[in-house]
Nucleic acid binder design. Structure first.
Lengths: 223, 223
DNA sequence: GCGTTAAGTTAACACTGTTAACCTGGTTTT
DNA sequence: AAAACCAGGTTAACAGTGTTAACTTAACGC
């Protein structure tokens, strides 16, 4: 059996090599440049050889996405660790890490959360739920600690997730800093800045503040 | 010159026919099914004939997107009209219309806000700013009327837009109702329900409520 | 040694967007 | 009216895509 073991091991190695090549191609040439032939060439093998390791391109991409979520989860985990459980800072740090990861790995992020009716679909199938569990735990802790309004944690997570993800999606679709038309005060404003600015709204809400409350910069942006 | 006029008019008609065909193909077969040959076949013409009206496929898609935003803007406009200026209901109605349009025209929506480095990019280039101006006006009015916290309106718009858009993006990527793993209370919960549920957070914020304030359903969702 | 099988090859098919060369009929010009 | 022009259409073809089929080749278990 030892030979068989080494065989399957080598096979697994090749598989990993292919995955790494696919990741590289994706990062360098983008999703459109990610073709079977391009990956195969990078591995130094013919395109059809890949079909011995993956059923088809979708399966290959699915594995790339899976490993992407793995890295993503670790990235988030690391960001959370620096802040105590139950603190709002921990929740905020997760959000900022989300934004940073997306901006640093744009091609990756585009594929991970591709709108196309492709692979992922089931969030629970992803490693660590694609960071969902991490954020949920932080929210539950914050509620328990009394630093956050008590409500359905899944609803709150979805709310925070939506806001963050939507910001990134919009930012990547039309590169906010290149859209001065968006608003007078938006030129050069990076997504991470905007995310931080959202913090006030998330914390205090958009309702009319009680009389006498301090508004940060009321009525400024419209000139 | 009358002949020339009718000529260009007919030409414009054919162009419109092609665009309509492209929209149909997109709606029926999705973005992957939207090929030049498919559109041409629907028009009853050879694929290369399309190149007399559009420089290439990207240009054609760009026009489809443009007309999509047009319809989108009108859809939003109509939704807003039923609520008085300055009211929060008007802002909320715009958000709900956003969600409804996206769900009713999924293939369209996927293309409109495609993550791929494609056409739109400049929001201001779109008809009515892709609804941005509409929402901004509603927000400015609400602030002026005192029904909404006074702050940089563009920041608030971006916040609301991000939240709504993110919800849709996530919902379409993993079909929330098919993701019971997302949360115990999520099964069968439609995006529009979630959007409405977010309303409380947007309004009041996530901060710990002052003692004695009513929390809607504290701690319910986890068991 | 022999059969099996994994892992690779090349050739080919059906697609895709796109270009080139060509035709054709109405418009414009002389 | 004859000639030139040109918008609008055609078919053939090219390069690229994912994918399948048939074939080789080497290593393994018996």
């Amino acid at each position: 059996m030892t030979v068989n073991q080494t065989a399957t091991r080598r096979s697994a190695d090749v598989e990993a090599t292919i995955l790494a090549a696919a990741r590289d191609v994706l990062a360098q040439r983008g999703i459109d440049g990610l073709s079977m032939r391009a990956v195969a060439e990078r591995v130094g093998v013919s395109a059809t050889a890949l079909y011995h390791y993956f059923e088809n391109k979708d399966a290959l991409v699915e594995r790339v996405v899976q490993s992407g979520f793995q890295r993503f989860g670790e990235y988030l985990q690391q960001a959370a660790e620096h802040h105590p459980r139950g603190s709002l800072e921990r929740v905020r740090a997760l959000g900022e890490a989300y934004v940073r990861f997306a901006l640093e790995n744009q091609a990756y992020f585009r594929v991970l959360f591709s709108l196309r009716p492709g692979q992922p679909q089931r969030i629970a199938d992803l490693p660590d739920g694609g960071g969902y569990g991490l954020l949920r735990a932080a929210v539950v802790d914050a509620m328990a600690a009394g630093t956050m309004r008590r409500d359905d944690p899944d609803l709150v997570v979805m709310y925070l997730w939506s806001m963050t993800h939507g910001l990134l999606t919009i930012a990547m679709a039309c590169r906010i800093e290149e859209c001065p038309e968006l608003g007078p005060g938006f030129t050069g404003r990076q997504p991470l800045d905007l995310f931080r600015a959202f913090g006030t709204f998330v914390h205090e809400g958009l309702a009319r503040q009680p009389a006498g409350a301090h508004t940060r910069n009321s009525g400024e942006g419209s000139s």
